[in-house]
């Protein structure tokens, strides 16, 4: 019998951890990793530090290309899965190549989420998810002194810190979309807003209504309660699982791929991990997505362990705390509010 062929779609924290684990637990397996990014895997949580100029590009990189050779894995960069055929057990790539698999880990992550009411302003807001986004931030910040942050996810807080380090004037529309997908209490909101104000951030009240580019290039921003302006508007509304390509696969999809507590997606050998997984919690009898780097890695490892024959459960204990200079948020997947 030939060695099983495993595919991991995604080369972010979850996919990378899954690869490490699979080579450890199933060393004979033929492993292919598909990465949409055209470059090495990187640590997304360090992107704000990169923008701030506190680290250089090389420090962002998680693993060099040579590492994949060393572990005997085949890395396909700049390639995107566009369809999953669970009957044929094949992944179709964007360049029309079919890849067969015995086991599959979906670790496709998410795309910056823009709430539907703001879609019309999409082109006027800059997210931060990829290296290309970071480069764009660096480029744009050369000509901009004041930045407005809307939304307010974990990356957004880290970007605020980076902007302050760059001596930029920072305003923050800290509305109800903040901290998505967690649902913090009003008290948590208030505490977070206080922290921001104490750092020198101007908190703009209200909910985003409108963004207009003025003739001088500045952006005029209107909320339900105020008007302000900025040279640059950053959008931080969390990540939406990037699972549209799975719509016809037969997998259960809600916000992400619905998986059980073993990250099993309901088809033999198919698992999901990281930002794209919506994990079932038997006690609360509901699904929830996790956020954050450490959670993604933990899920990637569990998915790989189970694909390699294990029966591990996700750890429901709240073990992952995001702490950004006093703004503390529990990012464990089923906790609905910050600690």
């Amino acid at each position: 019998m030939s060695a099983p062929k495993f595919i991991i779609i995604g080369n972010g924290p979850a996919g990378l951890e899954a690869a490490i684990t699979l080579k450890e637990k199933a060393p004979d397996a033929r492993l292919t990793i598909i990465s949409r990014d055209p470059h090495e895997s990187y640590r997304p949580k360090l992107l704000p530090d990169y923008i701030a100029g506190q680290i250089d590009r090389s420090a962002l990189m998680a693993r060099p290309f040579s590492w994949y050779d060393q572990i005997g894995a085949r890395l396909r960069v700049g390639q995107t899965a566009v369809r999953l055929d669970l009957h044929a057990r094949e992944v179709l790539l964007d360049h029309h190549e079919r890849l067969a698999f015995d086991g599959l880990i979906l670790a496709v992550g998410g795309q910056p989420r823009i709430p539907e009411p703001y879609w019309v302003f999409r082109d006027l807001m800059l997210p931060l998810k990829t290296m290309a986004d970071a480069d764009q931030w660096i480029d744009r910040l050369k000509d901009v002194d004041d930045v407005l942050i809307v939304g307010g996810d974990l990356t957004g807080f880290a970007v605020v810190r980076a902007l302050l380090a760059l001596n930029k004037k920072v305003r923050f529309v800290f509305g109800e979309e903040a901290l998505w997908p967690t649902r913090p209490t009003p008290e948590i909101f208030r505490q977070a807003a206080d922290r921001l104000i104490r750092r020198g951030v101007e908190v703009v009240p209200g909910k985003l209504r409108r963004i207009v580019r003025e003739t001088d290039g500045a952006l005029a921003v209107t909320t339900t309660e105020a008007q302000t302006s900025a040279g640059l508007v950053g959008a931080f509304f969390g990540l939406a699982p990037d699972v549209a390509f799975l719509a016809e696969s037969g997998l259960a999809i809600e916000r992400g791929v619905l998986v059980d507590e073993h990250l099993y997606a309901g088809f033999p050998g198919v698992y999901a991990a990281g930002d794209c997984a919506q994990v079932y919690h038997p006690q609360i009898r509901d699904y929830w997505v996790s956020i954050g780097y450490e959670n993604a890695r933990a899920l990637g490892r569990i998915a790989a362990l189970n694909l390699a024959g294990g029966l591990e459960r996700v750890n429901v204990a709240a073990e992952s705390i995001f702490d950004d200079d006093g703004i503390r948020v529990n990012t464990s997947w089923w906790m609905e509010f910050g600690s």
Binding site: R76, Q79, L92, L93, H95, H96, E97, R98, L99, A100
Partner: peptide
């Protein structure tokens, strides 16, 4: 039509 694995230079 979609090609089998290895038939594309991308692979």
């Amino acid at each position: 039509s979609p090609v089998a694995e290895g038939k594309s230079i991308a692979g």
